[in-house]
Structures are given as C-alpha cells and as structure tokens.
Design a protein around this nucleic acid. Structure first.
Lengths: 205, 205
DNA sequence: ACCTGAACACCGTTCAAGT
DNA sequence: ACCTGAACACCGTTCAAGT
C-alpha cells in the first residue's frame, strides 16, 4: 500500500509514522493479528522496537489508525461500483462490501473484532458515519428504482449493513460452512441474492 | 452456573475440570477476555497455575469447551419462548437471541470473536448445527403461519441468523450508536421489528 | 494419576542515556 | 526532537520433582 520512500531526511517527522502504520498493515494481513507485535512492527519499519512509542501512545492507538484507514477503504468498496456491471447499484454495493471483507479479512476483523477499537476518536466516528451514509445512498436509490420497499432510509441502511456484516463475519469466523457448498466463497453471494429477492416489493415467490 | 461442590474426593477426576471451566466462565463475563489468564483461572479454581494443563491441552482447548457450552445456551435462548408472550414465535426467538448476546456479551464474543475457535471439534459442529436447526424451525413455522414469504428454509434461516448476528455484533462492538437512541439497548429490538415488517409478505408500508 | 513451583520464551511498556 | 538498549511486569507453556 505504501510506495517506496527514499528520502529519510531528519525533518520528515511524519514519514516514520507512516512507515510504521504501513508495516503493521502488511504484517496484519499476511500473518494475522498475532503477527502484529510492536517488536515485529519496529523491525519491519526499520526502527527499534520502542520507536513506535515516539509516534503512538500505545499499541491500541496504532491499531486505531489502521482501523480508520480500513474503514475508509471499506466505504470506498461500497461506492466503487462498475456503472456497466451486472445487477443494480444496491446489489453491486453489497457485493463490493462482501468482497472487501473476504479479501482483507484480518483488516475487517480489526474493525469488528473482539475488543472495541481504542477510544472512538472523532476521525473514526466520522468515517463510520460516512460508511452508513454510503448505505443510505444505496437504499434511497433502490427505493427510487422500485427495487426496495418504502421505509426510513437510515434504519433500512442499518439493517442492510447488519445483514452484510453478519454474512461476512460468519464466513470469516468459519461459522458458515454449508455442507452443500464446498467453496465457501460462493455461498455468501448467493445468500445475498436470496435476501435481495425476498426484500423485493413484488416478491417473485 | 456451577453449584457448590463439597466433595473433593481424589477419584473425582472430572470435578477439577468442571471447576476450571466454571472459573473461566465467571472471569470472562465479569472481567472480559483479558481477565481470563491461566494463572487467574487456576487461582479462582483453587489450584496452581499449571494445573489446567492436566485437564486441557492448552488455553485454546479450555476456551473451546467454554464456547461449546455458550453455543448450547445460545440455542436454548432461541427456543425458550414464552407461549403466552407477545409477538410471533419468530419474533420471540429472535428477541431471545438478541437478549442473550446483549446479556452475555463476552461469552457471545467468545464464539464469534477475532480468531476462529481452536479446532472445530465434532461436538462444536453438532452444537452449531443444532443452532441453525432452531432457526429453521422458526422459519418453517413462520411460513406456515403466513408470516414469512416462501423460500428454502435453510437459506432463509441462515439469512435471519446473519441479520441477528450482525445486529448483535455491531451493538456489542459499539458500531451502532445511533444519535437518536441514547439507550443502545432499544435500538436493536426496534430494528428487528422493522426487518420483520419488511419481510412480511403483505408489506404494511 | 494429579499437582506443584521454578524456569523459559515472549510480549507491552518504561526509562535513562545517547545523537 | 528522535531514537536506542536494557529493564520490568506479565503471559502461555514446559518440566523435573513431589504425593
């Protein structure tokens, strides 16, 4: 994610910080959460193991910054739909979300994992609000197109978010092994199709 | 959860094991995952800190047993509906699930948390199958009663499970703070109501 | 068979000391 | 200002030794 940076000028204060976050990001996705220790991050960033403390209060703050970037990327994956691609905007946005969670599962788990992410900073809340906003836009568009029943857009967006999160998270944590689908990847997308069909006003049952 | 056991006869081999799991359970819900160390579990169970290794391969196996019990309790909370209570069986089952997750959030997180639960033992898979079975029963009943559209029961049950898990998990991880509902507890139940109304064949919109 | 206490490797974090 | 290396407290795990 981080381009090679050659200038190591002493005045470049933010450079080391960026390098540390980038190193943590690489370690997280390649080796899982256990691989992200401050020692390994320091080594991967080319500094000592206590150098991160010059840039972050503690490990939680480093992870919070990584979570913030992840949340922004995740929101982008909702909006990045192919205008010529198959399916409605709603469907494309949902598939983008599911694909991101599936592809960057350790990053996804960082946002929604075991323990709440550090202090909910203002930046993190803003990013979360933008994420729900992306879903609201999908809902309003779908309602305009007659693809979704009427109802309060914010609450419907939250429901769709919850459904997608549930599907993605159950898959990541290995609770969705259906006996009939050996490849676990396809099952979730098919379940989404079923959900959207069921939600369709003129139910095709 | 564990009744007071007085007999400490040397031949009672399973007693110490039960005591250890019970101690871990208490520590988990009262102090969160960080409070569950083998040292604290040993102390709370009245044995040394390495005694747990006489009964479990490692910490993961201990937690797997705790997760198994939790999964069984969670499934019971789906089926334990008040026959005279308000709302349909489907609604009551869903509310029971959400309430369990809200009440025993650290146990709930143990099942669905960061890292997959140890090796998926046969007992754990059986318990998971029974959980999805409880949802299937709710779906089939709801379809019989005309409360839910027709469709493959197993897949619809999985969708409902995913929706409930998404709601419960977003709430537990603090991602569901809606500005309009100061008390976070009510919001999720209201979202469920909206979801069930939207899924209703004769949509009351 | 079951338990104990010391020991080992590892981690997050702190701090006096360097440039 | 930024970094370093040693140190501290803690954890999971192992093991020789006890009963």
């Amino acid at each position: 994610m981080l381009g090679t940076v050659r200038s190591m000028s002493p005045r470049d204060g933010t450079h080391t910080r960026t390098t540390i976050v980038s190193a943590a990001s690489s370690l997280l996705e390649s080796g899982g959460p256990d691989a992200v220790t401050l020692r390994s991050v320091g080594t991967a960033a080319g500094v000592s193991r206590s150098a991160p403390y010059r840039h972050f209060e503690d490990k939680a703050e480093l992870l919070a910054e990584l979570a913030l970037q992840t949340l922004i990327d995740l929101t982008t994956s909702i909006r990045n739909r192919d205008p010529l691609g198959p399916g409605s905007h709603l469907r494309q946005g949902c598939l983008g979300y599911l694909r991101y969670a599936r592809t960057q599962e350790h990053h996804y788990q960082l946002i929604f994992g075991d323990r709440p992410i550090a202090e909910p900073s203002a930046a993190l809340e803003t990013a979360a609000d933008d994420g729900i906003q992306a879903f609201i836009e999908l809902v309003e568009q779908a309602q305009t197109d007659g693809e979704l029943a009427q109802g309060p857009p914010r609450e419907l967006a939250t429901l769709i978010w919850a459904l997608l999160h549930g599907l993605a998270h159950l898959q990541i944590t290995g609770h969705l092994r259906e006996p009939r689908t050996p490849e676990g990847d396809i099952g979730v997308d098919e379940l989404l199709t079923l959900a959207l069909d069921t939600l369709h006003p003129k139910s095709p049952a």
